[in-house]
Computed example of a mutant assay.
Amino acid sequence: MTDAPPKRGPDKGYAGGEYSDGRLSAPAALRNRAHLTAALTDIAPAKGRALEIASGTGEHVICFAPAMPGLVWQPTDPAPDRRASITAWIKAEPAPNIEPPVALDACAPGWAATHGPADLIFLANLLHLVTEQEAQTCLTEMAGALTPNGRAAVYGPFLRNGETTSEGDAAFDARIRAEHPDRGYKDLQWVRDTWAKAGLIPDTPRPMPANNLLLVAHKPA
């Protein structure tokens, strides 16, 4: 399931998900980023360009960049307030291999031509919040933006054989579908098949904490 709300103690400068300098904070990102950093470090190329799509608050990329110093990280997000937060996090925790954030709607067609090529493309916790067509566009554009031998990685909750695998996942998926019937969890095999149709070779899914998965695929040389 998606990461449950954490118990959070007093944090100087933090109030209601926002720091006094404009940084936004997502509790789920703080909980999962160490696990994601370890998993991405295992699959990432030693050097090249890494594209993070739907970067959100910016709390992932500031953790990824120091751990993978051979990659130049490009964070992106379609929302101005999120890009402002990313900029604030980079200022607060700078790394020489993080570029300033740029605008990118990962579910809009055509972005591979303007935001590629990339040796690693990462996306977290988006596919279940968009329609199947939007998710298909996102996955196909990821494939198009990769360099030969490049890798795409998507993290989040997924169905297995069309079914949720925990009560928490079932409840969360039901809430999403109650508000937006055309959205909800995507099946891991559907993601793999979509990537395969786009020319990628899916790797074995990687189990992650909180019943989530990291789905990875690579582009043939």
Rank of each mutant, 00 (worst) to 15 (best):
T2G: 03
D3Y: 07
A4N: 12
P5I: 05
P6M: 14
P6L: 15
G9W: 06
G9L: 14
D11H: 14
K12Y: 12
Y14V: 02
A15Q: 14
E18R: 15
S20F: 09
S20D: 15
A26P: 03
P27I: 10
L30V: 11
R33G: 04
L40R: 06
D42I: 08
A44C: 13
A44F: 01
A44H: 09
K47Y: 00
A50F: 04
E52N: 11
A54M: 11
A54C: 15
A54S: 14
T57Q: 10
T57P: 07
G58S: 12
H60E: 04
F64T: 07
A67L: 11
P69Q: 06
L71C: 10
P75K: 10
P75G: 11
P80T: 04
I86K: 01
I86S: 00
A88S: 05
A92Q: 02
N97D: 09
N97H: 09
V102I: 14
A103W: 01
A106Q: 08
C107D: 03
T114K: 12
G116K: 03
G116S: 06
L126T: 14
L129T: 08
Q136W: 02
T137K: 01
T137L: 05
E141F: 00
A143H: 03
T147M: 09
A153P: 03
A153Y: 10
A153R: 00
P157H: 07
F158I: 04
R160D: 11
R160G: 02
S166N: 10
G168D: 12
D169Q: 14
D169E: 07
A170D: 07
F172N: 00
A174P: 05
R175S: 15
R175N: 15
R177W: 07
R177M: 08
E179H: 10
H180A: 13
R183F: 04
Y185L: 15
K186N: 07
K186H: 10
D187T: 02
Q189F: 10
W190L: 09
V191H: 05
R192A: 15
W195M: 01
W195D: 02
A196V: 04
G199E: 00
T204E: 14
P207R: 12
N211I: 07
L214I: 13
L215V: 05
A217F: 06
H218R: 11
H218F: 06
